[in-house]
Design a protein around this nucleic acid. Structure first.
Lengths: 352, 352
DNA sequence: ATGAAAGCGCTAACAT
DNA sequence: ATGTTAGCGCTTTCAT
C-alpha cells in the first residue's frame, strides 16, 4: 500500500495525501477526513525510507554505549551496573517523546566506525554517547560529523582545550565532585580521620577523576593527612578492589573508613572484609558511589551516592530532540546533583 | 557526497559504483580498486534510505520489551532485573553480527502501535519480542504483519491452538519447568517435605506458569502433600511477596522451605524473615529463580535457578537474522536448559 | 565490463 | 484548495 493507492481510493492526488499526512494547514476538513478514513481503513503507514529520502527526519536517535575496557564477552553482559539504567531511561524517555532509539555498543575502536556510519548513512537524526574511556579522538571525530550530539559524563574543559567544533554539541553531567565531597564530609562528620580511597585508576573517565579529586580536597580542607598507602588502585571492577583491599589489610596501619569510587568496588571490599573477619560498620565504615540496587539489599546495607541517572537521561533525550528539531547551533552544559544515601555501612567512630 | 560524486571522481558511472559497493562479481579488480580508493578518500557512505527504497534490507532488527504491568514510570527503570540482561545480550549479539538494533518498550496497548509501525514503515527487517503479559491478540497482530518475528518466552501451544499464521515465526524459550523441578528436587533431596511456593499469580507469563506447574508435579511425584496454605500469591514483585510471607508466618503450620518463582519475590521473603527473626537457612530454606546478580552477593547467598539468557539472546538474534536473510517460511522452536545454583540459603533439614 | 535509464515511495515547489 | 512534476540517492534491468 503506497500513498498513490490511498490517493486513488480517496479520489485525490498523492500530494493531497502527503499534505494530510504532514498536517498542512491549507486543506479543508472534508478532504482531510476523506483521506484519513481511507488511510485508517487500509492501515496505511508511509514508508520511512521514502520520507527520509525526500527530506524528512528519521525520528530516530542513536544511543551509543562506549566501554573500551570490557573486551571480555562475559563481563560485558552482567557487569554494566552503570550503563543498564541509562539504557532503560533513555529508551523510555525517547519512546515517550515519539522517537525510536538505535542502540549500539562500542567495545573497540573498530566498533566506533559503526557510530560514524550510523550518522553518515543517515540512519539517525542525532546521537547520545555515554561511556567510560572515550578518548578525545572519538569526540573530535563525532564533532566533525556536524550532527547533533549529546555527551553524557564528559569533561567540558577537555572539549574547550582541544578547540573542538562545538556547534552541535551538548554535555550532560552529574555532580560527582560534589557527591564525593558529600560522602567524605559524611565520613569526617562521623569522626573518621583515617579514610582510604579505592579507585585511583586510569582517570580516563571524567566522573572517576572528579571523585578522586573530591577525596583529596575534602581531606585537605578538613586538615586531615593524605596517606599514600590509603589510596588504592582500582579499575572500577569488583575483583581488583577485592585484591587491593586484601593488600591494605596486611598493612600495619589501617583506616577506619573507606570511600569507594563506585559500588562494584565497594562490594569487592566487603568481600575482603568478610574473608578477614572485619565487621562493617563496627570495625570499618564504607561508603560507595552509584547507589546500585543491591546497595540497599546488602546486610549491612551500603551507604552510597545516588546518581541522577533518570534526570540525566531525560535531559539528554530532550536536548538531542531539541537540537534535531530546531537545528540550532549551540553548545550547552547541564549538571545534575547527586544525593548521599547514608545507610548502615557508615557509622560514627564514637559508637563503637 | 553521493554515489554520483564518487562516480565522477573515479571516472565511472553510478552503476559501477553501486556494483563495487554491493560486491558484484563481474567487475575487474582494477576498476574496483579505483572506485574503492575514492570512496575511502572521501569517506563516502551510501545513504541508507536510498538503498532501502531501492530494495535493500535495513540491516536493522527491532527489539521490543513488552511489560504491560509496569505502568508506573518509576518502577520501569530499576525493576527490570529480568529484561536488562536481555537488552544487553541482544544488542551485543546483533551488533557483533553487523546489525543495528531498534529498541522499543511497550507499556501500554497504545505503545504497541509503535511496534506495528516500525514494521509497516519499513524501519526494520524483523523483530524480537520479549515480555510478560503479552496477550495472544498482540501476537496475532504481529503474525499478520507477515514479517520475520521471534518471540522469547512464549507458550507454543497457545500459538498452535489459536491457529496463528506461523509462517514467519520462531519461539525461543528457557526450560523453566525443568529448572523449577530441579529446584524442588534439590529441596526435597535436602529432606524438606513442607515446601511453600510464592508466585501463583496471573499466569499470563508462560515461564511463570511453568514454574508453578513444576512445583505441583514435583510434590506429587515425590508423594508429598499439596498444602493450599503454602501456595502464596505473587505478582513477581518484591513487595507483594513480602506481604504474603508475613501472612504465612502468622499461621500455625510453617513450611521448612520456600520455592519462589523469582528472585525479586525471594528478596521480599528474606525481608519478612529478617523482620520476624527467622534465620536462613537454619530455620527455613529458600530457593529463588532467575539468579539475578544480587543473589550471589546476599548474606546468606541465595540459591537460585539461572536462566540461559545469553544463549536465548544469541539464538533469537541468529534466528531472526537467518529469517530475514533467507526469507524462509518456517516455524521453529528452541528451548535452552536452566541451571540450579545451590548456595547458602538452602540446607539440609538434618543439619539443624 | 560498463553505461543509460527506470523506478523505489515520498515531499515540496510550482502551477492553476 | 489541489493537481503536476521534479527530485531525494540508490539499485538493477537492459543495452551495448
Amino acid at each position: 500500500m503506497r500513498s498513490e493507492d490511498i490517493a486513488k481510493l480517496a479520489g485525490v492526488s498523492r500530494s493531497t495525501v502527503s499534505r494530510v499526512l504532514n498536517n498542512y494547514p491549507d486543506i479543508p476538513q472534508r478532504t482531510r477526513d476523506k483521506v484519513l478514513k481511507i488511510i485508517e481503513e487500509y492501515n496505511y503507514e508511509p514508508n520511512t525510507s521514502a520520507r527520509v529520502l525526500a527530506g524528512k527526519s528519521t525520528n530516530t536517535i542513536g544511543f551509543f554505549v562506549v566501554s573500551l575496557d570490557d573486551q571480555d564477552n562475559m563481563n560485558r553482559i552482567y557487569q554494566n551496573s552503570y550503563f543498564a539504567p541509562f539504557v532503560d531511561a533513555i529508551i523510555d524517555t525517547a519512546n515517550a517523546a515519539g522517537y525510536y532509539v538505535l542502540v549500539h555498543t562500542v567495545y573497540t575502536r573498530e566498533d566506533f566506525i559503526k557510530v560514524k556510519q550510523a550518522f553518515q548513512q543517515k540512519r539517525i537524526d542525532g546521537g547520545i554517547v555515554v561511556g567510560t574511556r572515550k578518548d578525545i579522538g572519538m569526540v573530535r571525530e563525532i564533532s566533525q560529523l556536524d550532527m547533533p550530539f549529546v555527551l553524557i559524563d564528559y569533561d567540558i574543559s577537555e572539549i574547550i582545550e582541544n578547540h573542538l567544533d562545538k556547534k552541535h554539541l551538548a554535555v550532560i553531567n552529574s555532580m560527582d565532585y560534589e557527591g564525593a565531597y558529600d560522602a567524605m564530609s559524611h565520613l569526617i562528620d562521623l569522626g573518621h580521620s583515617k579514610i582510604a580511597f579505592i579507585g585511583d585508576g586510569t582517570s580516563n573517565t571524567f566522573s572517576g577523576a572528579q571523585r578522586f579529586e573530591a577525596y583529596r580536597t575534602a581531606l585537605m580542607e578538613h586538615g586531615l593527612p593524605l596517606n599514600e598507602t590509603f589510596i588504592l588502585k582500582g579499575d572500577f571492577l569488583k575483583k581488583s578492589a577485592y585484591r587491593e583491599v586484601l593488600k591494605l589489610l596486611d598493612q600495619a596501619e589501617l583506616p577506619t573508613a573507606i570511600f569507594s569510587a563506585n559500588d562494584d568496588m565497594a562490594l569487592g571490599a566487603l568481600e575482603a572484609f568478610k574473608e578477614r573477619g572485619i565487621r562493617v560498620p563496627e570495625d570499618i565504615s564504607i561508603v560507595g558511589f552509584d547507589d546500585v540496587p543491591v546497595a540497599a539489599q546488602l546486610n549491612p546495607s551500603l551507604s552510597s551516592v545516588r546518581l541522577p541517572i533518570y534526570d540525566m537521561s531525560q535531559a539528554a533525550v530532550h536536548k538531542i530532540i531539541e537540537m534535531c528539531q530546531q537545528g540550532t547551533s549551540s553548545f550547552s552544559t547541564t549538571s545534575f546533583p547527586t544525593k548521599l544515601i547514608a545507610r548502615e555501612s557508615s557509622k560514627s567512630t564514637n559508637a563503637r
